[in-house]
Amino acid sequence: MPLPDLPPTTPTDEFVKGLWRENPVFVQVLGMCPVLAVSNSAVNALAMGLATTFVMLMSNLLVSSLRNFIPKQVRIASYILIIATFVTIVDYVIAAISLELYNALGAFISLIVVNCLILGRAEAFASKHGIGMAALDALGMGIGFTVALLCLGGVREILGSGSLFGVALFPEAFQPWVVMILPGGGFFTLAGWLLLINYLKERREAASVMLQETPE
């Protein structure tokens, strides 16, 4: 039995929410496995972000267009099938584009299939909204995910290798912080970003409370 569609919201809202208010990495803290594992350089982060965005966009489109066709008893199986298909496609395409990138991302391309973010968007959003909204939602979430990955990958590459997108930023004498490109550095960097973003959010909330309390 298809689920009833939720009341429509503004398209801009659906797109923007993934960038900041419901950012998949910094707010929802979803899909941590690829976030921590492949954010050791900006290129890897960008590639993983784009691959995830593509899979999410395509699966959201397909799930949304088939939402009245899939009975709810087999919906998870159907979503997994759809997501796995696009992950396989991405896997082939990345190998065709660059073997080097393919080797750097390793098993994490295939592991996009178990990224809870994608299944989460299919289940929580695409199955209840029209195609347009589902696409906007996927794009917003995907871009939010990519930006977050780039935030981590940028910091880790700058400190860990002294470069950004492979371009050396510092003179020869720069001492790389090896820990930053090791798995531990992923946790440190993620924690640092979460700290900063929660601090900013708290300050903004405090400011809005102040505004409400002080009468004009």
Partner: peptide, 8 residues
């Protein structure tokens, strides 16, 4: 330990 991992 952080230094050991960062600057071996």
């Amino acid at each position: 330990a952080f230094l050991q991992a960062a600057f071996p």
